[in-house]
Amino acid sequence: MTPGAKRFLTMLAFISPWILGFLGFFVYPLLLSLYYSFTEYNLLQPPKFVGLTNYVNLTEDSHYLNAVGNTLYFVVFSVPLGVLTAFIIAFLLNQQLRLRVLLRMIFYIPIVVPISATAILWMWIFNSNWGLLNNLLALIGIQGPSWLGSPTWSKPSLVIMQLWLVGGSVLIFLAALQDVPRALYDAAMVDGANAVRRVWHVTIPMVTPAILFSLLTGLIAAFQTFANAWIMTGGGPIRSTEFYVLYLYENGFRFFRMGYASSMAWILFGAVVVVTVILFRTSARWVYYGGEG
């Protein structure tokens, strides 16, 4: 055996636990779910092949289309707002503030709080009678709505709640901001750029890799949103917060339709891949990596 082959086998032996885990716990279930998506499968009896029936039925399922609409709404509003909020907070935390370290920690705390606890907390905040939010609005003479009880306000409520969880992106933006060379600001000032122009022409271009990362991870997470709606609204009122994965879960584990749920999962997977590819393709035009010409 050649030394190269030996080295390769040694390497293979050391990474074999990961490879086997990857194959057994990721690739195998993934392929199995692809197969299930072409079957009628209730988890209790053997799957029965039905071809594309599940995919065709999805196009006629009004609840599915409703879930798609709800999810797109959540993605379109929560992701850009989340990135913007994270950037603004990081920008402020990057200034020479007193208690800066403490403030950074405070903004990160919600990330380490379990989502179930966060959901309960926000149910209280959104309480229309004695919740914090409506009480604050009342101070300025506004009668707050029934945040979670109204089909009009339920989705915006969950978008607002999502902003509470931007701590992770804030950290990434902070790191990116601290990486912006001081010399660029000095050069901009010499050229007469005011603060706004410095942010627009120096800061933002320099943190575009962080923006891309936050957008990407935010999009993937938003497409899969589940726990907040599951705990806070159960998908209601009148299915206004029944998101994609919530409906998928119900079909798979409540209504004995795992085949149908698998087809939903694969469509979601495809959608996420498409969005990710589009984002990457367009990133060449707007993301600046240091050192590029």
Partner: peptide, 13 residues
């Protein structure tokens, strides 16, 4: 319906 939903949402969820 909205008023009832509001009322219910205010009852500690």
């Amino acid at each position: 319906a909205e008023k009832i939903a509001e009322f219910k949402a205010a009852q500690e969820g």
